[in-house]
Design a binder for these strands. Sequence first.
RNA 1: GGUCGGGUGGCCGAGUGGUUAGGCAGAGGUCUGCAAAACCUUGUACGGCGGUUCAAAUCCGCUCCCGACCUCCA
Length: 501
Amino acid sequence: MSTTPTLSVYNSLTRNKEEFKPLVEGQVSMYVCGPTVYSDVHIGNVRTFISFDVIYRTLLYLGYKVRYVRNITDVGHLLDDGEDRISKGARKLQLEPMEVVQKYTNGFHDVMRTFGTLPPSIEPRATGHIIEQIEMVQAIMDNGYGYESNGSVYFDTEKYIADQPELYGQLSGRKVDELLTETRSELKGSSDKKNPSDFAIWMKAGEDHIMRWNSPWSEGFPGWHLECSVMSTKYLGDTFDIHGGGNDLKFPHHENEIAQNMGACGCQPSRYWLHTNMLLMNGRKMSKSEDNSISPAELLSGDSKHITQPYHPMVIKFFMLQSHYSSTLDISDEALLAADKGYRRLCEGLKTLEGLGLSAKNQTPGARDAELLKLLDDIDTELCDDFNTPKAVAKIFEILPLINGYKGGTIAADQLSADALQQTSVKLQRIFSDVLGLQSTLDDQSGGGKALDHVMELVLDMRQSARQSKDWDTSDKIRDGLAAAGITVKDAKEGSTWTIN
RNA sequence: GGUCGGGUGGCCGAGUGGUUAGGCAGAGGUCUGCAAAACCUUGUACGGCGGUUCAAAUCCGCUCCCGACCUCCA
């Protein structure tokens, strides 16, 4: 086996692909902006969290000890009209705000479990960290970067820009003088600010605002960006390794997060910033108002005019992994269908390999061992190149003809050694399930359990007898009947196999 | 308007100064009682116009088109 290649990641902060070196050798601290739990989770959210799940899994695979923190935003995230998202949900559903939060947090967890992602190491909630947020507001004020105005506290971007002209706007590529003259924040009706680019770190609650806490400045609630600054540094330290999130959070959310951390402790929170790109439908960012949106539930049930059939969560996940996390991905029925077929072939190939790995007898080196093992090594190389799952997946597909060819006899038995096949089997299984987080859809297809297995064994046995006596009418009748019942029979030299469609 | 990113073959999607990405679909073949699967072979490609270079889809300039962000969003 070759040595593990060096991991490199694209750092949004420097706009360069850099060698990844964690702060503490062998350990990685990673923070990812989680969902705001005010409604059912968006499929675009799912893509982002699947991307970071694979990043998390790859880091574990590479032997790092990882602390992965992903928050739940349950307060402070305001709508255009200034109403808190959670409060609005509560009003609409006539529930306690925390009931809304619980309902959609549960839903979020269910969906993520369906897609086979690992839970983060810590999943903190904004409402559980009000005290820490108040403390950070105080620290920012003590350092001269925050000012109180009518019970609310704002971050003083003008002072921050004066002190750190290179920093503010670095992540999002914004020009500071434009930020200062930006006038659109008037939308928020906040005339309490000194500059339009200033943002709230503590907001005084209005009369009818449900979610409110006591603070030195007013009864109110924390600003949206603050929770991430607080929770990331609380659990990962003032400076940690990776901060991730959707590309659309770069500005203002992440930019302001950096400003807050700098304002509070004078240091950058994260060393590497990783951003995932948007999921598109019909070439545009999904949006309910433009009718180009599909929910996780609709994808799984097939109940949407955008798709012709339900899709297995693993197929959807596989579809996503065939593009790079930093690229936009256009979702469509045609593309999902292609992924579905490809995924099925992949699963069958891996199943075949598993059998070969156990049954191969050739103890001498094979002429094509090197070719196979090279492809195997290439997978690691691709994963280490900024978590390039599409290329890693392509390598697996390049291995398939070797496996199937060996099984089918077009590749002679002495061409591949038992050892190489065994090694490939073990490694691919690991890549497939541990790193990519995929599960074969073939297994749960025989979900009827043992009874169905026995029935099928009997039926196929009877058909085999018919075939041996060249009773094609009977053998075809059995096959057609099974096909009508949704079971595909495939004949091979060693016998017939079956799968449920 | 500002900032950033992108335009790749029928579809999705990698990649990048010279050598097949990959998947799906299509075509031909092998195998098979037939079918399915598998295997082999295979076509169509890098928005447009210039420039740099021995060589550009890949670098530079211009241009057209698209998207994201700038306001809540993963």
